[in-house]
């Protein structure tokens, strides 16, 4: 395939990605160093109110928004350097909190709170998803042929459901005196309020995410189990390997590329955690990095959006994901050079 045909085939896709992914990224980078504000002027205003003996007048200096000839508010954009980044990171406050040795105060700051949650969330769910996925795959592989279809159907439901709705479904089981809260209360014989503090919400979020992603890991691992070399298993049996040893030394090494694949996809997706925050309405206690940017982007009561701070937090989020994925990307690169994919 020569260059011209290749370009013709790939062109539309690449143009879309450049236009809607690469260029917006450059915009975000530029915006993060700029602030756009309405232009204001200081004016002297004399205000008079009728009083008993005469008028009482006072002059005040007020800031007033300026308008152009068409009556639209004037706006100006100016370069602010790393100011927006500093507003997001709140380095002074963070530094002061750390100097006092108060982790709690440090984690009160939005960005660090979000970073803490996003990282623990990603790293805790990763082994759980892999483990649960593998267990389901082994159990299904062990089941009789007839029930495999229905089980795969049921397993796909948590995966296919809209993430916000999935989170809501879990929330409705617990909220108020939802049946699972009632069950816990009955078991512990005391009142529990699962939405009153951060850590219980976080547990529910972890549960939701594992419930949502484990089917994906299961399906991939299940496909991998079908291609395990039976001869190797047989020779392992002849060599006297126990069931566990066969799993540990034959099956899992065979599935290692799949484990890396699932881990890669899961890292990307868990780092983007967002729907949980919406579904559980947890913004008072727990926020994620992506939610932080989302919150800056939303119009506040007066219709303003903090685009600059949103861009700064977006850039920081992006740096995080690049750092997180770097080892895996390097491996993909090496594999490609080795002709494995």
């Amino acid at each position: 395939m020569n260059k011209k045909t290749f370009a013709a085939f790939v062109g539309p896709s690449v143009v879309m990605m450049i236009l809607f992914i690469a260029i917006p990224l450059i915009f975000v980078l530029i915006q993060s160093f700029q602030v756009t504000q309405p232009v204001t002027e200081l004016v002297e205003v004399e205000k008079c109110t009728p009083g008993f003996t005469g008028q009482i007048c006072e002059t005040k200096i007020e800031t007033r928004q300026m308008f152009d000839d068409a009556g639209n508010p004037l706006r100006q954009t100016k370069f602010v350097g790393f100011d927006s980044y500093n507003k997001v990171l709140e380095l002074q406050r963070a530094g002061a909190a750390l100097a006092e040795g108060s982790i709690k105060a440090f984690l009160q700051i939005d960005f660090w709170k979000a970073l803490r949650f996003t990282l623990t969330f990603t790293l805790i769910t990763l082994p759980l998803v892999l483990g649960v996925g593998l267990l389901i795959a082994l159990a299904v592989n062990n089941a009789t042929q007839r029930i495999k279809g229905p089980i795969i159907f049921i397993s796909l439901l948590p995966f296919i459901i809209t993430p916000v709705i999935g989170a809501l479904a879990i929330r409705w089981l617990f909220i108020g005196d939802g049946i699972l809260t009632a069950a816990i209360e009955w078991y512990l014989a005391r009142d529990v309020a699962l939405f009153a503090q951060g850590w219980t919400i976080e547990l529910m979020m972890l549960f939701y995410r594992v419930w949502h992603v484990a089917p994906f890991a299961f399906v991939v691992f299940y496909a991998g189990l079908q291609t395990v070399n039976q001869d190797t298993i047989e020779s392992a049996i002849i060599d006297g390997a126990s069931r566990f040893e066969r799993l540990r030394y034959v099956i899992i090494p065979h599935m290692m590329p799949l484990v890396v694949f699932v881990a890669l996809i899961h890292l990307m997706d868990a780092y983007r955690a967002f729907e949980e925050i919406v579904g559980f309405s947890s913004q008072a206690h727990i926020i994620s990095l992506q939610w932080l940017t989302y919150d800056f982007l939303q119009a506040d009561d007066s219709g303003n959006r903090s685009i600059s701070r949103a861009s700064a937090s977006a850039m920081l989020t992006m740096i995080g994901i690049v750092l997180l994925l770097f080892p895996l990307l390097r491996k993909t690169w090496q594999d490609y050079r080795g002709g494995k994919i």
Partner: peptide
């Protein structure tokens, strides 16, 4: 070239969507 496109796509796949929306919204 094909491979670079694929790797770029992989990185783009990882981007949180809010990052991109921050780029679109003002425009």
């Amino acid at each position: 070239l094909a491979f670079s496109i694929l790797i770029a796509a992989l990185i783009f796949r990882a981007l949180p969507h809010s990052v991109l929306v921050a780029g679109y919204l003002p425009v």
